[in-house]
């Protein structure tokens, strides 16, 4: 992860551009596809006038037209949204893990985050970055300038996954940091106390933030490809367990599936998106599928 360019390789950007085209992000606004925005923005692209009817906001009345026609007309604008996005990245030590893939979970998450940051900045939406492990230890304020992408990628390339995951505590911190309602995109393997995570997510959602949780696991963590007798060590806690892998794959996969199902249900319940991913899936394809799926819902 030496260079910023690694995360924005031409083929990735091209893929994202194509994604833009195909998803009509550029025309309709990325965030329209990304979220159902309740905000009013500052766009000047006029659309049409229509007669005022009781109930319309009086501040939308075009007084110039009233002066000319003596009738109340309100201005209609192209529905455009500007939203502040936060890329919240888990940089605990477990994110540095890969068993046999080219990208670690962290690398995979950076690729996802870079693509999303590119999209947002491309349509001039401010986007910020927050890194956490046991707590939030780095952050980059949201900007919509084109230089912001470089800053984000620069910070990410400097980051080194280390320490334990304390997602609950970090989300609490994040909740306190965010003043305005924002789109919070979390990238984590969630290898921590899931109850704390859910509590933190509920709090964020309660404050009006829109949530997308990218649950990134290594391919080995979702397939358990081991055979025979293995001794597994947790890189964060150093805990070691001895397992006869031959007879354990089925049980392990059941556990993972149960975890994912629970997360999907819990997040669905609070109106947040849960996106389970693994490093064995191409991230651009996974992201595109998610965005298309999300667009279809709005």
């Amino acid at each position: 992860m030496a260079s910023v360019e690694q995360y924005l390789r031409p083929e990735v950007v091209h893929q994202i551009k194509r994604l833009d085209l195909r998803a009509q992000f550029v025309v309709k606004g990325f965030l329209q596809g990304l979220h159902a925005s309740p905000y009013h923005g500052f766009s000047v692209e006029f659309s049409e006038h229509r007669r005022y009817v009781p109930g319309d906001d009086p501040k939308d009345i075009d007084w110039l037209v009233y002066a000319k026609t003596d009738k109340y007309y309100v201005k209609k604008f192209e529905a455009e949204t500007n939203i502040t996005g936060y890329l919240v990245m888990d940089v605990s030590e477990s994110m540095a893990y890969t068993y046999r893939q080219e990208l670690t979970k962290f690398d995979y998450s950076i690729c996802l985050a870079a693509a999303l940051a590119y999209l947002m900045i491309h349509q001039q939406d401010p986007v910020g970055l927050i890194l956490f492990s046991e707590r939030i230890h780095s952050s980059l304020a949201p900007r919509s300038k084109r230089t912001q992408l470089g800053n984000i990628l620069s910070l990410l390339s400097r980051a080194r996954p280390a320490g334990k995951t304390e997602a609950g505590r970090s989300l609490d911190q994040l909740s306190a940091m965010l003043r305005h309602r924002s789109l919070v995109m979390i990238f984590s393997d969630l290898l921590c106390d899931v109850e704390d995570v859910l509590r933190g997510l509920r709090k964020l959602r309660h404050r009006g933030h829109d949530l997308i949780l990218f649950h990134v696991l290594d391919e080995a963590e979702v397939t358990f490809p081991f055979r025979g007798l293995v001794m597994l060590e947790d890189p964060e806690s150093g805990e070691v367990v001895e397992v006869d892998a031959d007879n354990y794959q089925r049980e392990y996969l059941e556990e993972v599936a149960r975890f994912r199902t629970r997360m999907r249900e819990e997040l669905g319940h609070i109106g947040a998106d849960y996106v389970p991913l693994d490093t064995g899936t191409r991230f651009d394809r996974a992201l595109m599928e998610y965005l298309i799926n999300r667009q279809a819902r709005f």
């Binding site: 477990s94 893990y97 001794m231 060590e233 947790d234 367990v241 397992v243 007879n247 392990y252």
Partner: peptide
């Protein structure tokens, strides 16, 4: 057995005794 780094042992432990 060879030691392997594997962060997701939280999903390994529940049925470890039986295994």
């Amino acid at each position: 057995p060879k030691r392997l780094i594997f962060p997701a042992i939280q999903w390994v432990k529940p049925r470890l005794r039986t295994n």
